Simulated assay, not measured.
Amino acid sequence: MKYATGEETKKKIIDSAFQLLADKGYDAMSIDEIMKGAGKTKGSFYVHFKNKEDLLYEVIQNRLDRNFDHIVEETLKKLSDETCDVQLVLKGLMRLVHVGTGGVDRELWTAAYYQMVVLSRKNQVVREWMLKQYHAWVDFMSKIILRGQELGQIRTDIEVRVMVNMLISLLEGYELRSMVDPEINVYEQLKLTELLCMNDDL
């Protein structure tokens, strides 16, 4: 019971920090504000974290990775089917990203991610995490594109690397723009995906 209570407290602290990260940015949020949002005393903070930076790394691992490993596992299962429709796999992946994963609201995730981009300019650990994320997504989406080419469902006249970078840029660009333009239809990119990647006869 004590362990469960401790884990619940830790989750509340992470949730509070994630919200403040999105709303104010890392530098502007204080431990006092984090604990107030969590409904816990400041002393509880040091039971679970050494300092604010230690908490930030927990936020990265628990709120910003979008359940990436699970997404990869489920997607690769679909791709292993000889009858799979790679266009539908790509569209499903993009929808999954935009509706939010891991129980994280998309708008909240986007705001927090933007703050991480800003922070990466001066924080080496954050910059390395972001580069690792980009490389992981490039590798993952390259597998999707290559599988589509293998099945004759994706055009081969554009380099895989170029197509993947276009898709990732579309995902990121629409998300960031949605922060200031809530009327934008993030699903417009599904049509662009067809135009960029799929054979004309599909």
Rank of each mutant, 00 (worst) to 15 (best):
T156L: 06
Y174K: 11
M163P: 05
S142E: 04
G102A: 01
M130D: 02
L171D: 15
V186Q: 13
L108T: 02
V117T: 07
W129M: 05
R121Y: 12
V160M: 08
R106M: 11
R106N: 10
Q189A: 12
R155A: 01
E172T: 15
M166R: 10
L171P: 14
I154M: 07
Q115V: 01
V126Q: 04
R177A: 14
K122Y: 11
V117K: 10
K122Q: 13
G152H: 03
L167R: 11
M130K: 12
K143M: 08
I154A: 01
R161F: 07
L171Y: 15
V99T: 10
E183N: 13
S178W: 10
L108D: 05
I154P: 06
L146P: 03
N123C: 04
D157Y: 02
D181M: 13
Q153R: 02
S178I: 05
D157S: 02
G173F: 05
S178K: 15
F140R: 02
V162A: 10
M141K: 14
S120K: 01
E175S: 15
L131Q: 14
N123R: 07
G100S: 00
L119C: 00
I158H: 03
V138Q: 14
G148E: 01
Q189T: 12
E175K: 14
K132R: 15
I145N: 01
R161N: 12
L146T: 08
H98D: 14
E183Y: 11
V117A: 04
V138I: 14
S142G: 06
L151A: 00
A136G: 06
G152Y: 04
R177E: 14
A136C: 08
D157P: 04
G173H: 06
V118D: 09
N123M: 03
Q124S: 13
L170A: 09
E107C: 08
L131I: 10
W129R: 10
R177L: 15
S169K: 10
R127L: 11
I158K: 11
V117F: 10
V162P: 04
Y187L: 12
E188W: 04
V118H: 09
D105E: 11
H98T: 10
R106W: 09
M116K: 03
T110V: 11
M166S: 10
G100P: 05
Q149C: 02
V162D: 09
I184W: 02
N165L: 11
T110H: 05
Y114R: 12
L151G: 00
G103F: 07
V104I: 08
Y187H: 12
T156C: 10
M179W: 06
V180G: 14
Y134L: 14
P182E: 01
M166H: 08
Y187A: 05
S178G: 07
P182D: 00
V126N: 05
E188C: 07
L170F: 13
H98R: 14
R155Q: 03
F140N: 00
A111K: 13
G152R: 04
M141H: 13
T110W: 05
D139S: 15
I144W: 04
T110A: 07
G102D: 07
D105A: 06
E107V: 06
Y187D: 14
Q189S: 11
M163Y: 02
M163A: 03
V186A: 04
Q153A: 02
M166Q: 12
Y187R: 10
R147K: 09
R177N: 15
G173T: 04
